Amino acid sequence: MLRHLQLSHLSAGLIAVLVGYTSSVAIIFQAIEASGATREQAGSWMMALGLGMGLTTLILSLRHRMPVLTAWSTPGAALLAVGLNGVPLGQAVGAFVFCGVLLTLTGVTGLFERLTRTIPDSLANALLAGVLFQFGLSAFEALATDTALVAAMGVAFVAGKLAFPRYAVPVAFLVGILAAFGLGEFAGTETAAFALSMPIFVMPEFDITVLIGIGLPLYIVTMCSQNMPGVVTLRGAGYVPPVSSALTVTGLASVLLAPFGGYAFNLAAITAAICAGPEADENPGTRYLASLVAGTLYCLVGLCGAGVIALFALAPAALVAGIAGLALLSTISGSLGAALSKATERDAALVTFFVALSGVGFFGIGAPFWALVIGLPVHHLLKRPTAA
């Protein structure tokens, strides 16, 4: 297996972890603060989340030999940040365990997997393109705020595409890091303290109002806003997603790690797209090596705790936006092409794409879910039978 490891795998895995942490770690800290956790318990949360993502990614990627990345539930963290105020920590942990049990049961029964099979490929690709499009756009928006850094990365990327296409993204990433250091945009790294985190167990307490008010919404937003985009990401990359297996593994991880702060785990979408695209490896059969790199890094980051998280937070925003956009260009273009390839399904695909892109949400559930809720009826109403 190691003999197939390439620089592009290492780069894709590192970029996925960088994007995964810098894009949402602030929301995690807000959720921790709302829970009333102590500083030591906050370190335990970050350890549990890092190890949970890393171990579940390693297990699923090795088992299925495909780039299956997992993540913490970002919309779940946002829900916790506003919903945990005044809730005793033990009862909050009980809600996390309840959510994990629901995720596990969803995986074991296979109901969600059967549901995902009813989604047409055109809509799945449109949904994926809509979810990822903002990341591609952000790369070019960053050109206005940090012109020198992003321009250097863009030139390196184009030059890499011409000279050595497989390594265009790693080269752009390296040039971006060097440019950021040269421009002094990594200033302040000395404030990041590196230390191993210690797990702190909190006994779950089960209160029916907290289970319904926190645990059930946490499960719903994780399923609708996280797992569904994760499934279509793998489908868009040409894989058959191991939906039930992934839900079972992430659900069990949520149950086991909930007392330590691992509130909910799910399939990743954005970071999975980085490891599942052609930029990670031209051969789809060995792209899982990129996710193994990401899983290993997640474990290391989790063990090192909040000090490493602080270091990730110090990365220039333009560097993260730029490399994420460049790494996802191929995936975005491929998804858009596949979504619009059939004329009879094009209108519904565009509706799905724009709803996903809009970021609209209702009842605390994000745009990816509503994109399918609106797109599917439009698809069935407008699709015309092809002539014999």
Rank of each mutant, 00 (worst) to 15 (best):
G50Q: 10
S291T: 14
T189M: 14
A356W: 00
G176N: 10
H9I: 09
P75R: 05
A290V: 11
G136P: 05
S335D: 00
A280G: 12
L51A: 08
Y263N: 10
V293I: 11
L211T: 05
C304E: 06
L289V: 09
S341V: 11
T116H: 08
A321P: 02
G261H: 11
A367L: 09
V131K: 10
G236T: 05
G20V: 04
V240T: 15
P284C: 11
A306Q: 13
L14C: 13
G322A: 12
F96A: 03
T286M: 02
K383N: 11
R287N: 03
A144H: 13
H380V: 03
L62D: 00
A92D: 01
A42D: 05
E279F: 03
G20R: 01
S11I: 09
I208H: 04
F29L: 15
Y239K: 08
G334W: 04
K342W: 01
M228C: 03
V131M: 12
L257V: 04
A179W: 03
A321K: 15
G76D: 07
L218E: 02
D121T: 12
F186N: 03
L234H: 11
G50H: 11
F186Y: 08
L329G: 07
P67R: 09
G215P: 04
A310H: 13
F186W: 11
V301D: 05
L143N: 09
G100C: 01
T116M: 15
H379C: 03
C275T: 15
S244N: 15
V240H: 14
R63W: 14
G302Y: 08
E33Q: 14
A349K: 01
V131T: 11
P368R: 06
L376W: 07
T344H: 13
L49H: 05
V243L: 09
G182Q: 12
E185P: 02
K342G: 04
L2E: 03
T352F: 00
